[in-house]
Design a protein around this nucleic acid. Sequence first.
DNA 1: TCATTTTATTTGTTTAGACAATTACTGTAA
DNA 2: TTACAGTAATTGTCTAAACAAATAAAATGA
Lengths: 156, 156
Amino acid sequence: MSGKLQAEIKQSKPFPRLEDEAFVNLIRTADRLVSAQAQLMKPWDLSPTQYNVLRILRGAGHEGLCCGEVGERLITRDPDITRLLDRMESRGLVTRSRDRKDRRVIAVRITQAGLKLLEEMQPAVEEFARKHLGPLGAARLRTLIDLLEQARERAG
Amino acid sequence: MSGKLQAEIKQSKPFPRLEDEAFVNLIRTADRLVSAQAQLMKPWDLSPTQYNVLRILRGAGHEGLCCGEVGERLITRDPDITRLLDRMESRGLVTRSRDRKDRRVIAVRITQAGLKLLEEMQPAVEEFARKHLGPLGAARLRTLIDLLEQARERAG
DNA sequence: TCATTTTATTTGTTTAGACAATTACTGTAA
DNA sequence: TTACAGTAATTGTCTAAACAAATAAAATGA
């Protein structure tokens, strides 16, 4: 089961440290999954991050969320929420409206079109996760989740 | 140990499917690690991908590698090797020279300056992996590696 | 009340990512 | 030999990522 990554990246020497092998494996696996997911979403012209925003906003319901909150809940961080939302707003997927009480705050809400798009994409996106991770089975997934959370504890 | 991610992304409902939770966890962990690593490398003005190129070229030795090979061995794929190498060449970290036998091919080699930079950065980079993943211990790292390789089998 | 700090978002600018199209060269087969 | 397909790398172009700086509003405190 081991040495697989070593062959993939055509490395002549084995990894000297287990941490390095785990690190490279983790980054590579995530990159491949995100790339494949991005390909999957292409027919709808939506990036994984934009899809993520739609899910967050659907979860937030009627009240919507302010820009900062959207940014914090994103799976991968994005240093420019403003223009991410600009693009989505110009496509009619979200709306922005200034809060009456605190006029610094902009509430972002998902539109009907955004909800529709999300529902349209959802089956394919769910199938994707099932296809790639489902075969590991519940016990292994549970273990994987725990290990990842432990790794992230030191990453902030 | 569970529900940690749910709190992080302020999700009100738990994940309905274990695959989704594992997927999101994986992507998020990788994103945080790469971001932190990029920060770490900033004093040398080198991106994780560029660092990766230097390591690949050091491993390749005197002969160097052609552009395509460099691209294949990268941890995260990059659709524009040419300009990635342009930047590194203009900084004097790598050299390019056309192969005499097959004039389509460009051999890329690391320079003395590239080797020096790599050696200069290496301690910090290794400490980084040790700090974040070392605490899991050998057994868990082995398990993590195996699980990631299994997940990647279906991702191509 | 008025200066000061803090918070939320936006804007400007530079660099890198993505992808199609192109150039340059090699190998093959009529 | 010459047309053609295949391969390696580059170029053009558009969009998005990154990061610093700026704007605008609210909260704080003399």
